[in-house]
Simulated scan of single mutants.
Amino acid sequence: MRRIGIAVNQNKPSALDVTKQLVSLLEAKDAKVLVDSKVADQIGRSDLALDVDKFPDQVDLVFVLGGDGTLLGVARQLAVYDLPILGINLGHLGFLSEAEPEDLPSAVDRVLRGDYHLEKRMMIDASIIRNGQTIHRNIALNDIGIAKGSFGRMVTLSVYVDDMYVDKYSGDGLIISTPTGSTAYSLSCGGPIVSPHINVMVVTPICPHTLTSRPFIVQKDQVIRVEVSATHNDIGITIDGQVGYKGEVNDTIIVRKSPHYTTLIKWQERGFFDVLRQKLHNPN
């Protein structure tokens, strides 16, 4: 019997209806189902309630109902457990999701018969060091952002790779992304699209105040060190655009490949560049 956990972004308009449908489809196939405690009571199934952080001991894989942001949050929460995740898109873009609500019957059938492949997505670790002490550490599937806060101010970031000086970037900040994150904030700042099958890190300046600053790519096992300088302390460090820390002048941020991966459930016939065309193509 397959054991399925369902994590839900209850703020999406169709979340409860889709959750009910998914539970019915899975139970009709004799799967064991557990639902995020925050949602189970709302759909009248308190008998299925379990906190998402307890899924690893009880389920074989997780359906995530929501948008890309929901999946990113669940991926960080479950990263150390290597649980396969299937994204069901209830958001706008749904770049990381593999199915839409109208695909639920087919998606359930495919998952239960094992008609999919697992795609391991690289994650990165970020440590914020202040006065020689690590004050924050976190993991990201998409990116680490280091940026100034207020409009009209700049931040200067000195970048080193494996202790070798690269350059100094003055502007709005810097994004360090995984291949998965290369199609997110980094892309909007002029960074390259990187196939998720290539494990590298992308460093992309945000609105650099120079004619020569360009994004660059480093090997997965290299370590990126960023030293912060500015005339103010209005500085922020973000994890996947969801978790934020207040930075200060002279902070050092160390970014390296994480030992953990996010494992996504993917359909064999649906390649990365197919999704890229479908989701990011501008018909105009």
Results as ranks from 00 to 15, higher is better:
60 D>N: 12
277 R>K: 15
257 K>R: 15
80 V>C: 10
43 I>A: 13
66 G>M: 06
130 R>E: 14
15 A>P: 10
2 R>F: 11
273 F>I: 08
277 R>Y: 06
260 H>V: 03
147 A>N: 14
97 S>D: 05
231 T>G: 14
11 N>I: 09
281 H>R: 10
62 V>A: 11
37 S>E: 13
88 I>G: 04
195 S>W: 01
170 S>Y: 01
121 R>V: 00
233 N>V: 00
69 G>C: 02
183 T>K: 01
204 T>H: 01
271 G>W: 04
242 Q>F: 01
185 Y>H: 15
284 N>L: 07
153 R>T: 15
256 R>Y: 01
6 I>K: 06
77 Q>G: 07
35 V>M: 04
2 R>A: 11
258 S>V: 02
169 Y>C: 06
230 A>Q: 00
22 L>S: 07
126 A>T: 11
26 L>Y: 02
230 A>S: 14
114 G>T: 04
173 G>H: 06
187 L>I: 02
105 P>A: 12
270 R>S: 14
268 Q>H: 11
142 N>Q: 08
263 T>Q: 05
107 A>Y: 03
58 Q>E: 15
275 V>Y: 02
53 D>I: 05
260 H>E: 11
284 N>V: 08
72 L>T: 12
220 K>G: 13
138 N>H: 14
248 E>F: 14
253 I>C: 00
200 V>A: 11
56 P>Y: 04
278 Q>D: 12
8 V>C: 12
156 T>V: 10
12 K>M: 03
174 L>F: 08
171 G>W: 01
188 S>H: 07
146 I>Y: 00
92 H>G: 10
201 M>H: 02
239 I>F: 10
251 D>P: 12
88 I>M: 07
277 R>P: 12
194 V>I: 15
56 P>H: 04
172 D>Y: 00
193 I>R: 00
84 P>E: 09
7 A>N: 08
21 Q>K: 09
217 I>G: 07
18 V>Q: 15
60 D>M: 00
270 R>H: 14
196 P>F: 00
147 A>I: 06
57 D>P: 04
23 V>L: 08
208 P>Y: 01
146 I>P: 03
209 H>C: 09
72 L>C: 13
182 S>I: 01
59 V>Q: 09
111 V>T: 11
83 L>F: 02
124 I>P: 10
6 I>R: 02
225 R>V: 06
29 K>Y: 02
59 V>I: 13
265 I>H: 04
190 G>Y: 00
60 D>I: 00
65 L>C: 11
210 T>C: 08
49 A>F: 03
181 G>N: 05
238 T>W: 00
46 S>P: 03
282 N>R: 13
245 Y>T: 02
220 K>C: 09
145 G>V: 12
185 Y>V: 10
95 F>Y: 15
129 I>F: 12
88 I>S: 05
237 I>V: 15
67 G>V: 06
158 S>V: 07
47 D>F: 09
240 D>S: 11
205 P>E: 03
198 I>D: 08
173 G>A: 12
2 R>N: 11
9 N>W: 00
149 G>E: 08
40 A>R: 03
